[in-house]
Design a binder for these strands. Sequence first.
DNA 1: GTTGTGAATCAAGATTTGTTGATGCGTCAA
DNA 2: TTGACGCATCAACAAATCTTGATTCACAAC
Lengths: 108, 108
Amino acid sequence: MPSPKTKDLEQAARWFHALSDQTRLRIIDCLLDCEQCVCDLTDMLQTGQSRLSFHLKILKDAGILKDRRDGRWVYYSLNPDTIEEVQEYAESLKTRSHGGRGGSPCCD
Amino acid sequence: MPSPKTKDLEQAARWFHALSDQTRLRIIDCLLDCEQCVCDLTDMLQTGQSRLSFHLKILKDAGILKDRRDGRWVYYSLNPDTIEEVQEYAESLKTRSHGGRGGSPCCD
DNA sequence: GTTGTGAATCAAGATTTGTTGATGCGTCAA
DNA sequence: TTGACGCATCAACAAATCTTGATTCACAAC
């Protein structure tokens, strides 16, 4: 069973970092059903615009969100591809860890 | 479709924070097959003992690792229950986001 | 007891992260 | 062209995080 490459770990750490904040998880929650523009998100989350923009950038840089400008408005939406990759990473941890079954004695 | 409660978000943010660091992901990788004691991990990861202890504590506090003392040695192993919860959270994001199909127009 | 070893904790400093308010940029309407 | 609006970015500060080396703690062997 191959270990993940450093690059994969880097990527995964980036994803998880983007997800490691309640504000950002709430943003994601607001986007589960459909895209939203920034001003709607400030209303939904009751937060300052610059704070929101900061967190949106982190999520976007991690590949978790996409944005789309329409006139004066910028709409953010989830990037399903990345969400799926995150899920697959978590799934692989689960699958591979079940091989070791918790507190089994050392096997090296 | 109910939104996750604040408490769930808090929990999820804690999990993801614990996973948001390459060193910690490498630790997890070392524990996929079987438990390891701290001194083995320092060898495997080529890192200082106090640094490792710091990261192990974060993973343990997040519920991702369990520890077990045996004489002078402390053995760390994955906590499959938490790994599964993380995977389920990621899965729910994936499932729920597919309902919205990416960049679909706003529906509120 | 004393000593040695594995591991946690502490202290100090460097770095990163998050918040707030101000400013700048692009777009639209008048 | 001017003004208003939506949003990104900047500057400054507060707070959290990470690293390193020293110290402490727990246990076992002697």
